[in-house]
Nucleic acid binder design. Structure first.
Length: 443
RNA sequence: GUGGUCGUAGCUCAGCUGGUAGAGCACCGGGUUGUGGUCCCGGGGGUCGCGGGUUCAAGUCCCGUCGGUCACCCCA
């Protein structure tokens, strides 16, 4: 059999990277819980009509199919792997609304699948860390202002470059476009979103061509898109463009609240960026996008927004707002730049040296004693020369080697980084706090 | 899904206009008969991503495919 090869878009990290991922996920989880979000996991599959029910394109949904399927089976394409965590969540809320208390806030950290063409930081199977809040009938707006604060805290707890959360509001754009007399806001939005890639001239031309805009209207759209401020001053800039529309007013008012909450909570975290349109099709108001400083060219690693109608069935309506960290994407980018490191490639803190195979039971007792006090320990694989046993630890970044005392002498422990070796008792010895578990750091 | 580009040892790469593979680092062993990281000596390891084709002969040319990456699409 020939050597197996990777499957495009399905990344597998090495243990050191997986330790970093676990560490980061744990910090994100802790922050989510600090804000009172409750844990939730939904199944990997959803009925295809649920996944596609928001109208839109066929997405790149993977369907589930049995290998040994009866020919002509009807239900072949009825299940698909979820491509985000918001749609399954909306379904879950509808299904369990009777058992939940509202407003309901939950987090979900799970794999999702998209059949997109992979490249660095873009995968077909990847991990998302998602928070959402939904309420019955109406969701107070202050939750829109809370989302970026949670993310800001989560990111601040990670060894990564500072994050900037870019915020916009669909109502601002739509209201502005309608106030201008353009009646296909979605088309305008899609076109304006290409601004960074194709430049203002081409966007203007496209607006005239595909959205029925006049040159003046196109220019106004570009001026709106150029507005970017770290405080509420964007309102004046928009007003100066002289467009009047009730939806625009509503959007501006909302956006101001988000930005001001951010300024109060963590200066520099948030920017009002009126050109961003991103996010799935179900967003109706606030939209978020996040860049890491120094990684702007890699795009957003965390995004979300307000959705008014996603969880709706009959008379029941559960508007929500949420945001999702692209954990795999973020890690892939940072790994690619060698921007994350871990102090050792295994959890092990202490290797117990094995003087002779007959002494393995005694060494196992030492290990058991250390483990009982929470110190990750393994016994050397064989009674090789001590030099090799030390090297075994060194290769993995394990900081300590334990030497059982011979002939009744006291045991000793060696810090192989400094070479210091001191007497120690397995029932009381403690590593320094920084050595107990692997340390993840930016680099 | 469309197009571009790349794919030689674990890693970084060399291999001229085709003549059946090399370096550095890493790894293993010995010098150092049980306490490593220096130094010296020696060693293992590659179906040149995979499969076809052209040719007396292909890592080197052609086609396909898989994988990485970039752009489009879309988005974490």
């Amino acid at each position: 059999m020939s050597k197996p090869t990777p499957i495009s878009g399905f990344p597998e990290w090495l243990p050191a990277q997986r330790m970093i991922e676990q560490n980061i996920v744990e910090r994100i989880r802790a922050t989510f819980e600090l804000y009172g979000f409750a844990p939730l996991e939904t199944r990997a599959v959803e009925p295809l009509d649920q996944l596609l029910r928001k109208g839109e394109t066929s997405k790149e949904v993977y369907v589930l199919r049995r290998l040994q399927e009866e020919p002509g089976a009807q239900s072949a394409d009825s299940l698909g792997l979820h491509f985000d965590l918001t749609v399954p969540f909306a379904r879950f809320v509808l299904e369990n609304s009777g058992k939940l208390q509202f407003p309901f806030r939950r987090y979900q950290i799970q794999k999702v699948w998209r059949g997109e063409r992979p490249q660095e930081g873009r995968y077909r199977e990847f991990l998302q860390a998602d928070i959402d809040v939904v309420d019955r009938d109406d969701l107070p707006f202050h939750y829109d202002t809370e989302m970026p604060l949670v993310i800001g805290d989560a990111f601040a707890s990670l060894p990564i470059p500072p994050a900037t959360i870019l915020v916009n509001n669909r109502k601002v754009c739509e209201g502005f476009y309608r106030g201008l007399g353009l009646d296909d806001p979605d088309q305008v939005l899609r076109t304006v979103d290409k601004l960074d890639k194709i430049g203002p001239e081409k966007v203007a031309a496209l607006l005239v061509e595909t959205a029925g805009a006049t040159d003046a209207q196109a220019r106004a759209c570009l001026e709106l898109a150029s507005i970017s401020t770290a405080d509420a001053s964007f309102v004046d800039a928009v007003r100066a463009l002289g467009v009047d529309n009730p939806l625009l007013d509503e959007g501006l008012e909302e956006l101001v609240r988000v930005v001001e909450a951010g300024v109060e909570h963590a200066p520099g975290l948030i920017r009002a960026e009126l050109k961003i349109a991103r996010g799935l099709d179900y967003y109706t108001g606030t939209v978020y996008e996040t860049q890491l400083q120094g990684y702007e060219r890699f795009g957003s690693i965390c995004s979300g927004g307000r959705y008014e109608n996603l969880a709706t069935a009959g008379n029941e309506r559960f508007p929500g707002v949420g945001i999702s960290i692209g954990v795999s994407r973020m890690l892939g980018l940072l790994f690619g730049q060698n921007a994350l490191g871990v102090s050792r490639s295994v959890p092990t803190c202490v290797v117990v040296a094995l003087p002779a195979e007959e002494l393995r039971p005694a060494c196992d007792r030492i290990a058991r004693s250390l483990r009982s006090r929470g110190i990750s320990t393994e016994v050397a694989p064989s009674a090789a020369k001590f030099g090799k046993q030390i090297r075994f630890a060194e290769r993995r970044g394990i900081p300590y080697v334990w030497f059982p005392g011979a002939d009744g002498a006291a045991d000793t422990i060696k810090d192989i980084r400094s070479g210091d070796q001191v007497e120690a008792d397995a029932s009381t010895w403690q590593p320094t706090a920084g050595d107990l578990t692997p340390v993840v750091s930016g680099s």
